[in-house]
């Protein structure tokens, strides 16, 4: 398997889980990022607190980089049109279905929500198909 990193991924996942747990236990809200992001834009309620969560998402990696000095890998397609279409679909799709990788994939699945399990299987399958089709057109990232 290529670039397989089970240990750091597991540790990272546990840390994400700890964040979700603290956030839920204290505020009573689920840390689904697409929801927090959309509510920051559309909803006056908890706006500052949602915005601070998003700012934290940016500070976290900067903080980690400053402590560990491990370079943050970031390889992305250079096609602006592809990025634009992707962002649009992610914004529209996550709001239509009510969650993303964190909201459905983590919060929903751990509450055994059938809705979230169906959503997660669907978006992973759809992502797999998309990557497969792109690769057949010779687009490898």
């Amino acid at each position: 398997m290529y670039n397989f990193t089970p240990i750091p991924s597991l540790i990272g996942g546990i840390i994400i889980g700890i964040s979700v747990v603290i956030f839920f236990y204290t505020t009573g809200r689920l840390a689904g990022i697409s929801g927090i992001f959309a509510n920051t834009i559309l909803n006056k309620k908890n706006r500052i607190s949602n915005l601070l969560f998003l700012i934290g998402l940016v500070i976290g990696p900067l903080f980690y980089f400053n402590i560990s000095k491990v370079q943050i890998n970031f390889e992305i397609t250079n096609s602006i049109i592809l990025i634009f279409i992707a962002g649009f679909l992610v914004g529209l799709g996550t709001r239509m279905s009510g969650g993303c990788t964190s909201g459905h994939g983590i919060c929903g699945i751990s509450r055994f929500s059938i809705r979230s399990i169906v959503a997660t299987i669907t978006f992973i399958a759809s992502g797999v198909v998309t990557v497969f089709i792109l690769q057949n057109f010779g687009v490898h990232l």
Binding site: V58, G93, T122
Partner: peptide, 30 residues
Amino acid sequence: FKLIFGSILFGTGWGLVGLCPGPSVSSIAV
């Protein structure tokens, strides 16, 4: 329908470049 169709749209966008909402915000850091 909205759950399924929305998830298909999200998965397509996710597969096109490999970014979902959390990492897209965090990647401002790079």
